[in-house]
Design a protein around this nucleic acid. Structure first.
Lengths: 215, 215
DNA sequence: TCTCCTATGTTGGCATTGGTAACATTAGCG
DNA sequence: CGCTAATGTTACCAATGCCAACATAGGAGA
């Protein structure tokens, strides 16, 4: 409210020069917009916030963002792209701390993956939402492949070491990814109720994947 | 366009009685709205269609839906609820045709699950979207549990027959669900590219789950 | 150093869309 | 048979994405 009124009044006076600390040109508005929107994604549920408020928080008028992003979905796509890179970093960090077996690495990566999803639920949902067109904004596919590579590395090494079954790598990788992704999504949806799947879903799930289901 | 103009003109003339085939009261508008919205969900991508067009297609004014649903999200929730029931029916149908082993049933159910997601991509996404609040509209949890029960039945029978490993049922079930759900989501996102995960992801993925990954 | 050109930012406005309020119509119950 | 509640309509508002016209200034070339 205060923010709004000061903003409006400064506009009505008709001179932004009343704020010597804010020059006419922002300097790095594109980055500021992304960071503001990331913050709003963290604060609220979903990405239904409006661009106008992003602009307001960044200290610019409500149409300034259009000089840097053709539309709102382009901004969201950029955030999603960075999300994939953040996820990749989180996974490599979790794996890197770990000099044990490939099995332990896989477990560590899975935990880190789920933790990332929980800690950044809106961002994670956005990354896999249909609202961001993975084909239209090509950096996205590249970034998601980079994340996928972490998993591929673990499996490759595991197979080489004989810890993992020597199955086609793609199928194994898809299975791991699908499992952890599905687990994360269900968790975010709070569909993994205790009465439904027990107290420790992630552990049980990954155990099932490792050991298999067949007797 | 034609629809719009006839609609508007009839309103301007000020008498709906020009349409003797459409009485003032629709008769079953709630159902009609749901069916229209389901159709629009099938036609387009996502559920960003507007309520006004749903109303228009159903042949009523743009605020009539509010007599049956407090807001748009309530309509979406109802569609999601029915989606869970449709999915359950699809799964039981696939399993029912199948009098073979529990393993075959699990495979059949998985295929049917993925097929349902592919054939109803927007609906499937909606069902697992944060846009529908599973707690607020309680019929949803009930419906999703009904779907989950199909899976539980298969696993229970499989364990009893000794086909499946005698692990805690909840973990096994969560693993299966997470795997197939994740597979479906990734498939809908077209993230299961051939160069990434091979030509037959679903088969490979489910195989991995059955056999396990450890050597 | 001066001058434009262009990138960036602002103002005002439009169209779409979800939702409310007040009123109209009618089904169906007492 | 008449009243009431349910259902539908009209007119409206507010929020929001986005566009057009204009303002400012940073910086490359004369």
């Amino acid at each position: 409210m205060f923010l709004v009124s000061t903003y409006v009044s400064s506009v009505n006076i008709g001179s932004h020069l009343n704020h010597p600390e804010r020059p006419y040109h922002h300097g790095d508005l594109k980055r500021a917009l992304v960071e503001t929107a990331q913050a709003m994604l963290r604060e609220g549920e979903g990405w239904q916030f409006n661009l106008r408020e992003v602009a307001r928080r960044a200290g610019v008028s409500h149409t300034a963002p259009y000089k840097h992003f053709p539309d709102k979905s382009a901004l969201l796509a950029e955030i999603a792209r960075q999300g994939y890179l953040q996820l990749r970093d989180a996974l490599t960090a979790a794996v890197g701390q770990n000099t044990r077996s490939a099995r332990a690495e896989l477990l560590a990566a899975s935990e880190a993956y789920l933790a990332f999803g929980r800690a950044n639920s809106s961002l994670y949902r956005l990354m896999f939402s249909a609202d961001v067109d993975k084909v239209r904004y090509e950096g996205l596919i590249e970034a998601s492949l980079a994340t996928f590579d972490v998993l591929l590395d673990i499996l490759t090494r595991g197979q080489k070491e004989g810890v993992f079954r020597a199955a086609p790598l793609e199928g194994q990788a898809a299975a791991c990814w699908a499992l952890v992704h599905g687990l994360t999504m269900l968790d975010l949806d709070r569909q993994l109720l205790v009465e439904k799947v027990g107290p420790n879903p992630s552990g049980a799930v990954i155990e099932s994947l490792l050991e298999g289901i067949l007797a």
